[in-house]
Design a protein around this nucleic acid. Structure first.
Length: 552
RNA sequence: UGGGGUGUGGCCAAGCGGUAAGGCAACGGGCUUUGAACCCGUCAUUCGCAGGUUCGAAUCCUGCCACCCCAGCCA
């Protein structure tokens, strides 16, 4: 974690507001997700910002669901989102709210607007409204219903609420300016008719308020001192302010925008993410390749790593596309000190130790090379052992420091071996290696005087447990997948499964699902995976950083 | 041809008129029974471009250029 005091333009603003006594009752922020999808790492940036600021300045944060559209929202998302926020490490305590909690008040404010002649009921169809809105360069045209009397508007609006009109047949619109350069100000829709049950209010309502009308009022009612949102809402700020200025409400939060998080080789749009799920490119919202919080969790990414990441990327208004290396760094950095080491082979290659006779030897190694508190584990060495295919080469590339025919290598925490011979199949693929070991070279008490160039991990046949090892790679082939063709840019090799072995000792650990398989990476045994008799299951959280790449 | 936002090294990002922080990546070296971790060191004469103001500009002014967002009864 970086311990430096975080500083960005929003925190500076908050600090200044406090200093100049503009926030009398303490800082209040909110995280306002719509329950129509799962949270992703971009949301984490917003969560860390909102909850982080409240923590730092002694304030409070609401978790408020922006549930004004019953057509796309549901209870299951509400639950999933709460789980993710909690997992990330934040607590809203008693401050769980829903925009739908405020439907009665919102309705009253709408009537107030009508009574003040600031809103009218419009009968324009969807297409007509779209037509009359104008374009980016042409002003809109005024609705023929704009001049209805207050009484008529009130009557119509009440009947809309009463369920007299079909879905989509009428809207309540703000009376602002059809000539406004900002399209959001061209008499925007405030309420629409939707005859559909809502996950919280069931069928109590058939009219639902729009985001622009709802969000600012909810912020004000909750006393939000700093309403933080992403840049695409900057154009909505004049409307946010207009609504609050035209109703009788005694609080007016400032809206402050920052840029959303971009992560290379990923997509962050809810639409694209749900496409990946629906079209089965991934196994679900929690697929370990997804940038969702549930996906990251399933991959074994610790929440602290995500928080660290969010703090490191900063908060500005610049468009950004963060390299995945930074996230990987944060993950390794938080896992490094506390994660047990173990040995595993992904693609087993058998070695017969020709000069080994009798029962396996019992050996010992620390769970962590530096953190002694983690203690030690035992494992065995015997006549048959497995190493990774990658750690043996008949024709090694330059600077290869592993096992070669006639060469020496150190088996991690065990002995030095020398490769004597190999056995190959008809394709020339090595199927078995014959080697001799040097009894005097035992780790910790080596008197052999031999100096092998490299060290590789191994698992003795008698100490091996079957393991299904999932390796994950980037989901996309390109740094910035394009909305129009992202399906063609999916990396077909983003998921590789190996049937390998891990040392038995991993089963004796119950307090942590994460291991660093030495020289391979950090792996995670997900509690979601149903345990089977045949094999253990591990997901690669992140590979180790590579100091040497084969093939140069 | 409208409105809003942004331009500092490969990716982020400080900088708020006094002579370019930091992180990641990369590269070089040390250490090493994980080619990991760890430790050293290198990495912007220059801040989108062009003018101007000033003793002095990434910071102020003017003009240009580039990129992102906006025409849901989505949020």
């Amino acid at each position: 974690m970086c311990n430096d005091t975080i500083k960005d333009f929003i925190r500076e603003r908050v600090a200044r507001d406090i200093r100049e006594e503009r926030v009398s009752g303490g800082v209040v922020t909110r995280f306002p997700p719509e329950p129509n999808g799962y949270l992703h790492i971009g949301h984490a940036k917003s969560i860390c910002l909102n909850f982080g600021i409240a923590e730092e300045f002694g304030g409070i944060t609401y978790l408020r669901f922006d549930d004004t559209n019953p057509l796309s929202e549901s209870e299951s998302y509400v639950l999933a989102i709460q789980k993710d926020v909690r997992w990330l490490g934040f607590d809203w305590e008693s401050r769980l709210t829903f925009a739908s909690d405020y439907f009665p008040q919102l309705y009253e404010f709408a009537e107030e607007l009508i009574k003040r002649g600031k809103a009218f009921v419009c009968d324009l169809s969807f297409e007509e409204l779209q037509q009359s809105r104008g374009s980016l360069v042409e002003p809109g045209t005024v609705s023929p219903y704009r001049n209805r009397e207050v009484e008529e508007n009130l009557d119509l609006f009440r009947r809309m609420r009463g369920g007299e009109f079909p879905t989509g047949s009428k809207t309540l619109r703000a009376k602002i300016d059809m000539h406004a350069a900002n399209i959001n100000m061209r008499d925007p829709v405030l309420y629409r008719i939707i005859h559909a049950p809502h996950h919280r209010t069931d069928s109590n309502w058939c009219i639902y308020p729009m985001y622009d009308f709802t969000h600012c009022i909810c912020d004000a009612l909750e006393g939000v001192t700093h309403s933080l949102c992403t840049l695409e809402f900057a154009d909505h700020r004049p409307l946010y302010d207009w609504v609050l200025e035209n109703i009788n409400i005694n609080f007016h939060p400032p809206q402050i925008e920052f840029s959303r998080l971009g992560l290379e080789y990923n997509v962050m749009s809810k639409r694209m993410l749900s496409q990946l799920v629906e079209k089965r490119y991934v196994s679900g919202w929690d697929d370990p390749r997804m940038p969702t919080l549930s996906g990251l969790r399933k991959r074994g990414v610790p929440p602290a790593a995500i928080r660290d990441f969010c703090n490191r990327v900063g908060v500005t208004k610049q468009n950004n596309n963060i390299e995945t290396e930074l996230l990987d760094f944060c993950i390794r950095n938080t896992l490094e000190r506390t994660t047990r080491r173990a040995m595993a082979v992904k693609q087993p290659l058998a070695i017969e130790i020709t000069n080994f006779e009798g029962d396996d030897l019992l050996l010992e190694a620390p769970w962590h090379p530096k953190n002694e508190e983690l203690g030690v584990r035992t494992f065995t060495f015997g006549r048959t052992i497995y190493i990774d295919r990658d750690d043996f080469a008949m024709s090694p590339p330059p600077k290869f420091r592993r096992l070669v025919l006639g060469g020496l290598v150190r088996l991690r925490y065990a002995f030095i071996i020398e490769c004597l011979d190999v056995e190959s199949d008809e394709h020339g693929t090595v199927t078995k290696v014959f080697a001799k070991y040097f009894p005097s070279s035992k780790s910790g008490s080596d008197t052999s005087g031999l100096k092998p160039k490299g060290v590789i991990q191994f698992v003795a046949a008698n100490n091996a447990l079957n393991a299904k090892i999932h390796d994950y790679y980037r989901l996309f082939d390109v740094p910035t997948p394009r909305r129009e063709q992202f399906e063609q840019e999916i990396n077909p090799d983003s998921h590789v499964v190996h049937h390998g072995f891990v040392e038995k000792a991993v089963c004796s650990v119950s307090d942590s699902p994460s291991f660093q398989f030495e020289r391979l990476g950090y792996y995670f045994s997900s509690p979601d995976d149903s345990p089977t008799q045949e094999h253990l299951v591990f997901h690669r959280t992140v590979p180790l950083s590579q100091g040497w790449k084969p093939k140069g």
